[in-house]
Structures are given as C-alpha cells and as structure tokens.
Write a protein that binds this DNA or RNA. Structure first.
Lengths: 219, 219
DNA sequence: CGCACAATCTAACGATTATTGGATTGTACG
DNA sequence: CGTACAATCCAATAATCGTTAGATTGTGCG
C-alpha cells in the first residue's frame, strides 16, 4: 500500500499543474503573461476582472509554480516561470481546437479567418517583411511589443492606430498580428485599415506561436 | 459586453481540457490509455480503483473529447482520441517535473535513477539494439507490447519474467523499459535481473516518450 | 426467455473551488 | 508621521467535484 500511495502522489503533483490551467480566467492570465511581465493591476484590467480576483488566481498559478513575481516599489510584476509554460498553454489550446468542435465554431463566428500559417508561409512572410515587401504591424500595447515582437514588425497599438494612419505606406500590403488566435485586436485593426482604403490582412500567430514554431523573435 | 462574453467562452472551452487533466486519477488513466486501447474493467484494475469510479472519470475524459470508445460485445474499449493527447500528458508532466521540486524529490525516492536519454543516446541505443549489442525488454503486459513497442524490443512481462529468465542471454547487457518515468515495473525487473546475476539497467522512456522524440515505434 | 456480467446511471455526501466584500500589509511620498 | 495606493489576506457564500453505494442498461449465451 505504501508504494501505491507514493505512486499516486506523482500524479497528484502533475495534477497541480492541471488544476492551475483548469480555469478560463487563469488561462487568460497565462496568455497575457506570455506577452511579457505585467503588474496585478494591469492583468486585472486586461482580463476585465477585479484586482482581488486576479490576485487570487495569480496565487493559484504561483502555487503551481507556473508564475514568478518580482517587486518594484509598490508594484509586483508577474511573469511566467519559463517559456515551457507558454508552450503548455499553446499545447492545451491546440488539443482543444483539434478535438472540441464547439471551440472551432466559436472561433469562426468571432474572428475573421486568418491567413493559415504553415512553416513555409512563416518563412516567406519573414522574407517579405525583411525585404520591405509587406509591412508587419504589432497592434498590441507598446509594452508588449517592447518585451518581444516579430522580426521587422513595427509597433502600432490598436488604440493609437487611427491617429497614426499617416505613418503607414498607402500602397503596400499590411499584415497585422496581436496576441494569438483568441485575440481580436488584429481583426479590429484590419477592419479599420480596410475602411480607410488600405490593403490589410491578419495572421493568427502571436509571438508565442511564432517562437514555438522555431522562428526568431526580436526585442 | 456581448463580445466579452463570447471571448471568454473561448477560454472556457480550453479550460474543459484543463479540467479533464486536473485529476490525478484521470492522468493515470490517460497514461494507461497511451499504452493502447483498454476496457473499463482493465483500466480500473490497473489504476487500482473501483470500476464505477473509473467509468465516471472516463466519462469526464470523453466529455472533454480526450478519449473515444468502441463497443465489442459486452466490452467497451477506450482509446485516446489522438496522439496529441498523449503528447499533452507528456507536456504537462514535463512542466511539472521542471517546476515542482516536490515531484522531482518524490521521483528520486521511488525510482532508481534511469539512464538519461538525450537524442543521441536514444539513437545509439537503437543502433545497439539493432546490432544485438544489447537486449531491450518490454516488461509491460503483453497487450501493451502488441499495441506498439520500441524497435527490436522483446516482450517480457514483469509477471512472467522470473519464469522466463532462461530466454535471456547471460552475457549481454539488458535494457528494460515500461510505461515511462512514473512506472515502476522496469525498476522491479532490473532488481530481479541483477539479483539473478544479469547485467541490467532501465531507461525512463516509454513508447510515448520515445515516439514523441521522433523515434520509430514498431507493432 | 432468463441468467451473467460489463458498463453506465442516479442519488447522496463531504471536500474543494470561484467569487465577493471587507480588512490588512507593505511601500512611496509629502 | 500620515496619507495614497498596489497587493494580499480573511471570511463567507454558492457552485462544482470526487467518491461511494445501489439500481439500471445492454449484450452474449444457454
């Protein structure tokens, strides 16, 4: 019996990770943290939840060792405890997309169909971005761009996009990206750009997806 | 607000997968199913739980679309709904091993230190197995061997090992494997073999780990 | 048909979890 | 020192989950 008890304790430890990612809010927090270190306040705002609730969920994530903290004056900055945590989030999301029809349906209803990104098309996008053939814009908040972004991308936060349209070349194809397939900021950006006569489309990749597919990230 | 509601539904769907893997028993069932299709009865026995409890957990897994069923007479055979499910289990376990010290400690106390398997040592083990330089034995139940096993491995279930010692060459190095790092059957086998004068050691890889590292599997 | 048996379903409980509101801690700053 | 504010802590509630036991379904077989 002693062996059975300790053996099951192995699974119990792994289940701690499972429990941590069993809540939609915590998954959203993980995705936000995959964009870079953030304070509790900012996380609460971006996830549209109360700061105390955010704190409680972050506590759960910290107890599962998925996140770490750093104090800076009055603020406590949270970050993922490693790149493997972001890849786990990706992995769970991919399994969900593969097996849960409801998720695929919900995604189709909410977001415009993005450019499918195979590894070759990622490479070719990278080449076109390098040569200036297309303009890649990162529509996330500037802090997230600073924490890491696609090569040759320029920061153009959704909130400022309308005011800064003049900075974009009129003739060229514009490619927008944000936090990933669940993030609607790139959709919003493309909608606005097309309205103003630009030729624009989005890709579903965020920095995490891009990097998990072996492509380089700048910062 | 409508958008916020539907957006959070995306995370809710992913969280269904998280919930499914948030229970130690369900993780154990997934690992067992990663060895091949099994009936509820067999799963209950191998996980040391009541059949009704196993059925309840399998229901949860089925509702998360992680497993599928097939009826054959009185028996219902469960199987993982794809190889990505086994890789998810691996991924979660790896994250847990990386970040939870308690898990590493528990593992060290229960299991003998296995041969560390880098990709090169996997390749070299494969070569030595092919040339007959070592004898690789699969100590899992025979049905699991039949569902898929390491190349050039021979089936030698732990339960029969003692009776069948004569089949093993006395001089050669014997390498034992079972279901993976959480499985203690290979430890047991190595202990017995050494007691009887064989030169034996184990590897931590099971078929899932082997295959996830890009190496071929036979059946 | 009726028995045997794999598997599921239903009901119930105790334990855990998500969420909320209020109180508290810790740091910066005047 | 005392105020401001980020963040956590501390109950308390409702909801969900794990587990057990008993009843039921579905299939094969004599």
């Amino acid at each position: 019996m002693n062996q059975a008890v300790t053996k099951s304790s192995l699974y119990e430890h792994v289940a701690r990770i499972g429990k941590a990612i069993s809540s939609p809010k915590r998954l959203e927090l993980i995705e936000l943290l995959a964009q870079g270190e953030k304070t509790v306040e900012l996380l609460a705002e971006q996830a549209h939840i109360d700061m105390r609730l955010a704190s409680a969920h972050l506590r759960a994530l910290r107890e599962a060792r998925l996140v770490e903290t750093r104090r800076e004056g009055k603020f406590i900055h949270y970050r993922l405890s490693g790149p493997d945590v972001a890849r786990l989030w990706l992995n769970v999301r991919e399994v969900a997309e593969e097996h849960l029809v409801e998720l695929r349906v919900a995604l189709e209803r909410m977001a415009a169909a993005p450019d499918a990104l195979t590894s070759e098309s990622r490479e070719s996008l990278l080449a076109k971005a390098r040569s200036g053939d297309v303009v890649v814009i990162d529509v996330r908040p500037e802090a997230e761009y600073a924490a890491g972004h696609l090569p040759h991308a320029r920061s153009m936060p959704l909130a400022e996009l309308e005011k800064r349209l003049a900075e974009l070349p009129a003739g060229k194809e514009i490619v927008a990206y944000c936090r990933g397939p669940f993030c609607l900021m790139s959709d919003e950006a493309v909608r606005l750009l097309r309205q103003r006569g630009f030729s624009a489309h989005k890709i579903s990749d965020g920095v995490t997806e891009w990097s998990a597919n072996g492509l380089p990230v700048e910062n």
